[in-house]
Nucleic acid binder design. Structure first.
Lengths: 149, 149
DNA sequence: CTAGGTGCAAAAGGTTTGCGGTTAA
DNA sequence: TTAACCGCAAACCTTTTGCACCTAG
């Protein structure tokens, strides 16, 4: 995984930023690489920590700015499942999120929409831009721990 | 709707609290009444403000405590759709939430599950306790405003 | 009686904002 | 050239915590 490709902007990011009226900056490219580089659901803090490796002078405010831009561009999604920090998800294909009430971790769950939106009675005049499914429960790890008491 | 009934605990609340190992307190009854009394999605702050009418000495910490207890008892749900404050929902029948990206308000949307969970590929060992659907977009009000420019 | 709950106030996150300097387009 | 963006630091808002007192069971 060439971490050198982050020096120049890749085409997709460049194009998306432009479309949404954002400038290309090395920070945005770097944050993009950091978030896409690991298939998990980092908080802003975690993105910040990872981003500092390879760009030590980057600031928290910039990480917020970059993540917001990437969300607006439709390149990542934000995930709010509890009252702690917002998390970010680099997986844009249809899936849903499992939130573990015990450890707070977020897992992707495969999901085929298969007409699930049919049951929705969205009132007249409302414009739906995103449909999202989430699950709460206990993950395998925590189940095992609980079992061992 | 007799606001006097809040003086003594109603049977359902009493029972649910006991089942989950909580004590009955006037504060919990009052917060319960406040949240159930209006079919919307108040923040903790909003619940606090409403609760002070009729119980002026109640504290923020207690409101948090009461809401947490009510959630644990399965009498209300918490709703996290953006990175601002957590909201609470008194509607426990199956429905989903529409979050307006423009004004931040949350609306209930009727919803019949009708096998929508079939498409889910929840990994082995995960225990699902709650299934939730949410929508993002622009509500009728904000659409109208945008239209008028 | 006493574990659990309350109110208060301070602390701890998480997020936003203001500002002077920098830079992509 | 200049509006957008950056880094820094302070402000802001939401949530949690510690503690002395109180109370439901």
């Amino acid at each position: 995984m060439g971490s050198d490709m982050q020096l120049k902007g890749d085409a997709r990011l460049n194009e998306r930023l432009a479309t949404s009226g954002f400038r290309f900056t090395p920070q945005r490219q770097h944050v993009y690489n950091v978030v896409m580089g690991k298939r998990d659901h980092p908080t802003v803090e975690e993105v910040f920590i990872r981003a500092k490796q390879g760009m030590p002078e980057i600031s928290m405010a910039t990480v917020y700015n970059c993540l917001d831009a990437l969300v607006t561009c439709g390149l990542i999604k934000h995930v709010n499942l509890d009252r702690t920090a917002t998390r970010y998800c680099p997986n844009m294909k249809e899936h849903c999120h499992f939130y573990c009430e015990s450890c707070g971790e977020v897992f992707d769950v495969d999901y085929t929409a298969q007409g699930s939106q049919k049951g929705l009675k969205v009132p007249e005049g409302f414009r739906v831009k995103q449909y999202e499914v989430s699950l709460r429960g206990v993950c395998r790890n925590c189940e095992a721990k609980a079992g061992r008491g």
